[in-house]
Amino acid sequence: MTSILQYPLPLPPILAHPSSTAPLLITQGAEALLYKSTYLLPSLPCALKYRPRKPYRHPTLDTRLTKHRILSEARLLLKCRKEGVPVPSVYAVDEGQGWLMLEWIEGEVVRVRLNEWLRWRREKGTAEGEEEGELRGLMERIGEAVGMMHGVGVVHGDLTTSNLMLKSREHAEVNDHAEGGEENLLAGEVIIIDLGLASVSRFEEDRAVDLYVLERAFGSTHPRAEGLFEVVLEAYGKSFKGAPIVLKRLEDVRMRGRKRSMLG
């Protein structure tokens, strides 16, 4: 998702007001920029997702796509939020200007925490398969969160460990890394972020592809945790009524891969 900044980026007009908190660019994806700022009060942090104009696209097409994508993401976040799926809440939207203002989630993405934990375990000399309670717990929470999202009819479209966050608990925030915080590395609520490619679907195929993409992400990014992916699926299987059929479908998706064989 992230890349190094090599050129000045356009600031959305909303962040250019003298009264707003100085924006901090967090990441730059292909389509959107993510800033940290504040909302209403200087003490209330927020995330601002901004989709700048794409000069290569015809202006009519560009406006149409940006509007559609901002609104779609906002609607899906709202839907998830209403039904209790752990996602950031929506503070404000301006689809004409191309931005979406969201709750700031204090914490880190699962990819970072999991890699830190895996490194810590290796340095400690613990063998794979031992003392995995904490990891199992995280995998269960991931399975439950994804299941809950699918249960309300939303598929994510880009489920990776970079799009799952672990929310820091307020009191643990300070000492998390300072003193022996490693035991807490995998603690915290799992929050699903970046619904930019999400859609409404109740097809088991779409849900199974979501799981398959997540499984592949574990395989390529955290091969040492891949063995426990079963735990994610187990927890997922119990999370909503249609889940067992999705798991059955996942076996088909695994067999053929997401990709077709190439003709011509």
Partner: peptide
Amino acid sequence: VEITERAMA
């Protein structure tokens, strides 16, 4: 162009 940009990112 969009899918290429996403791959580049």
